[in-house]
Design a protein around this nucleic acid. Sequence first.
DNA 1: CTGTTAGCGCGTTCAT
DNA 2: ATGAACGCGCTAACAG
Lengths: 334, 334
Amino acid sequence: MVQRRATLADVARLAGVSSKTASRVFSDKDKVSPATIQAVLSAAQRLRFRPNALARNLRHGGAPHTFGFVMGELENPFYYAVAAGIQSTLDDHGITLIVATTSESAEGEQRVADELLAQRVGALLLIPVSDDQAYLQGERQLGTPVISIDRPARNLIADSVVLQNREGARQATLSLIEHGHRRIAYACNPASVFTQKERLAGYHDALQGAGIPLDVRFESLLDDLNRAPEEVIRKLLAMEAPPTAIIAGNNRMCIGALRAMREMVHPPALIGFDDFNTADILDVTVVSYDAHELGRRAAQLAIERMVDSSAPPIQIELPTYLIRRGSGERPPTQ
Amino acid sequence: MVQRRATLADVARLAGVSSKTASRVFSDKDKVSPATIQAVLSAAQRLRFRPNALARNLRHGGAPHTFGFVMGELENPFYYAVAAGIQSTLDDHGITLIVATTSESAEGEQRVADELLAQRVGALLLIPVSDDQAYLQGERQLGTPVISIDRPARNLIADSVVLQNREGARQATLSLIEHGHRRIAYACNPASVFTQKERLAGYHDALQGAGIPLDVRFESLLDDLNRAPEEVIRKLLAMEAPPTAIIAGNNRMCIGALRAMREMVHPPALIGFDDFNTADILDVTVVSYDAHELGRRAAQLAIERMVDSSAPPIQIELPTYLIRRGSGERPPTQ
DNA sequence: CTGTTAGCGCGTTCAT
DNA sequence: ATGAACGCGCTAACAG
């Protein structure tokens, strides 16, 4: 039998007090006599009372101590580190984080963001997957902080916390050049997203600075979504005058590269973007960064915006670090 | 300037209709004339109206099309896969998933679970970290489905979806025995959680079945939370008459083992529990399973329970598979 | 320290 | 096809 859920009024009745007094027990504990508190609490327990946050937040005009986080790619460890970073900062401020996830589609993003905003969360953090966040414009103007993580929001004035993608890729490329490479390929997939465009630009910067012409053949495979990462790398290495060094634009591509190079006697040099679990064991040189910090900074920004939502939007850029483990320091094989 | 947020009444006024008519546009679209719909929608847009889910759900007595998921360990890739599995099933049913994360503490679990329930989610999925879920008892009796994932709930009658941990560990151990090992260690940390106890039992089953006595020295390091995984393995291998094979009870321990064995000429055999990203590249034999499926089944169960909450609780067990990649097939070195 | 009144924004009666 | 009034559960304001 589904029994009716107990309300504050029920609890109050059982405890022999007014509903407001009962209410106070769950918020303003201070101003209630100990005896009354006891009576109310035991009544609540008997009735299995659980405060209705919906009603409470409705009354309060929102849920300012709950932040929402929209996460697109559920399978990417990087984003969990971001989530953990957000979490840790919010924990210190007594703010609850609710994460709404989607299966990585533009509509999905908007749907869950709308859902969170409909709950009147105090602030919204998101990793954009759609290329248009205009739908959040109104919300921001109503004072809800919106913070974009990893990529800037598009068609929306919002704060953002991103990586120094361009500089990171430039340094990786430079390091390869210093180790004698001249045929260097950048591989990624998809290539059309912000982070990849930036990294690609950094790669170009370095080549140009060293007077190395772009080899357009190497770019022919960019953004080939139909091909598995491993295969993209194989194709690159099967060219004549193949690259002697490869920069993998993300985690997945890097691991694909490792698979492709598994049985090669003289594998090309490899630098990955994004550190990973076993990179040290596999001696993989990577462009690393503090994903936790990305989340922490975003959360801090959101909290600051709660106080002063009219401040001009800012963009924070976090540094990257080249971690040399061997794979990126191999000299050219020919 | 923080302007007041528009309500349905404001929209109705601007559109020149009653608030109920405006309301219908956002729910019962069918029974409103197209012209009115247009008028209301454009008014809504002008005012940047966003429906207040708090009010709506309050009226409805809950948010049945939103499920909550309590996830403890944010850093464990296994749980992302579970989350993704849940998501994919809920997507098919138009249900939104909100994930509340905790910093892996018992109080954290209860706090976020309470928060979710206070939002009156339709169902609660959780990976227990606390060893007592009695606090959810009342909720389940009120008809909210509670599904426990990876570990059964304790002191709570609830459905659960778990792995065949014991059988998986038994098979791994058996395989090692068949390859000639007799000094086999099981390493994990923490060891006090359900999954590890089960796996340890499976390991014991296999040893006993083969008439191999337990070597208590190998168990002395179980649950040594002060020691990093890598160090636990080092300690094991530094014993006299060390194990010739190791079963790592989870991901972290397995990677720790790989680190510890990195420079060994004749590393012991190794089987890990939980598959991971680069296990194929590192030739690591693992006990694998379908983490996605774990999430999907849990979500299905929750949906079924929404319809019939009085059905007796069931426990689903998902199989594990030994994936032989080399590390587990090495013969004993002495 | 405690009770009364009113209303948060919406949707469910009933009417028309 | 549309509208009026009431109430979901809770708390801010004001008593007392």
